[in-house]
Amino acid sequence: MKILVTGAGAVLGQGIIKSLRQSTLDCTLIAADPNPLSSGLYWADTAYRLPFAADPAFGDRIHELLDRERPDVVLVGTDVELSYFAAERHRLEALFRTHVLVSDPRVVAIADDKLETARFFESVGLPHPASACAEDRDAVEALVECVGFPLIVKPRIGARSVGVSLVRDRAELAQALEGRIGLVVQECVGNPECEYTASALVFDGMVQASVVMRRDLRDGNTYRAYTGDYPELNEQVRTLGEALQPYGPANFQFRLDDRGIPRVFEINARFSGTTPLRAMAGFNEVEMCVRKLLYGTPIVQPPVRSGVILRLLDEMFVPRDRIDAVR
C-alpha cells in the first residue's frame, strides 16, 4: 500500500510517520511538507514539497501529487491543512480512489476554536471549563463573579500553549487582554499534576477504542506520559467521542476538577502529537485506522502497557543531494 502523510515538518506529521514505522503495515511512505528541511521528509520513501495551506496553489498541488502517486490513504499531519481536506475529502476520494482520514468541517471547526469547544460541550451537557469570549466584557465579568481567580486567557485558535496566560487578579486579567483580540477566558481547572491526553477512534457512529495517558508538559508539548488502564476516564472519553462524532481519531485534553471529573479544554479533530507515544504503549491508532479503511478490519480495544514514556531529543544527517532531490 501507499500512504501519504502531509505536514512532515510538524510534531503531528512526524508522529504519524513514527507510528507507521512502528506498525506491522507493509507500506510505501510518501511525505510532503512546504519546507525541504523538514526531518519527516527523510524518514519516507518519497518526499514532496507543498505550498503552504493558505497558498491558492495548495489545492492544485494536492491534486497533482495524488494523481501522480495514487496513495491508498492520505493522513493529514498539520492543523492548518485540516479545513481544506475536510471540505474536499469526498471529492478527492472520488477523483483519486483514495481514503482521506479527516473529520467533517463541523467537527474540525468545533475543535479548531477553544470557545466553540466549550460551547459544544455545554450544548451536549458535558463537563468543560466555564468560558467567556474576551470581547464580551459582560460575560468575562460574569465569569469572574462565578468562578473567581485564577483564570486562563488563551487564543481561541492556537496550539502548544502559545499566548496562554494564567491570571490571578483583575489587574493581570486586564493586562492579558489589553490590545489583543480573538481570545477566550476560561476557568482554571485542577493543576498540572492532573492533566491528561486521550484518544478515541470513532467509526460508524461508535467509539471503537480509546486510550488515556496522564502527562507532564514542557513548552506546550507532552514530554512525559504515564500509561495505564484508567478505566473510569476511558469511559468518559468514549462518551466525549460519541458526542463529537469525528471520522476516525479525536484527541481530548483535559484536567480533573476537585471531584475527579474530566473537564476538556481542548479537542484535536485528528491524531495528536502524542500518537507515537500511545503506539509505544500498544495503542497504534494509525495502524488501526489504516487497516479499518483499507481492509475493513474491525478495531478491537488493545491492552495498554503500563509505564512511563520519556521523550528525548534525536538527530539525523541528511546528505545535500537528498535535500536537492525533494520535488
Rank of each mutant, 00 (worst) to 15 (best):
A200N: 03
L201A: 10
L201R: 02
V202H: 04
V202P: 02
V202M: 04
M206L: 14
V207H: 00
V207S: 10
S210E: 11
V212K: 09
R214A: 06
R214H: 04
R215N: 03
G220P: 04
Y223V: 15
R224N: 03
T227S: 15
D229H: 13
P231D: 04
N234T: 12
E235K: 15
Q236D: 11
Q236M: 14
V237C: 07
R238A: 08
L240Q: 07
L240W: 15
G241Y: 10
A243T: 09
Y247S: 10
Y247V: 15
G248L: 05
A250Y: 12
A250R: 02
N251M: 12
N251P: 06
Q253W: 01
Q253E: 13
Q253H: 05
F254K: 03
F254H: 03
R255G: 11
L256M: 00
D257Q: 05
D258H: 12
G260W: 04
E266L: 06
I267S: 05
I267N: 06
I267Q: 07
N268V: 08
N268S: 08
A269K: 01
S272M: 08
T275G: 05
L277M: 15
A281V: 01
F283Q: 01
F283I: 08
E285N: 13
E287C: 11
M288K: 07
M288L: 15
C289W: 06
V290I: 12
K292F: 13
L294I: 14
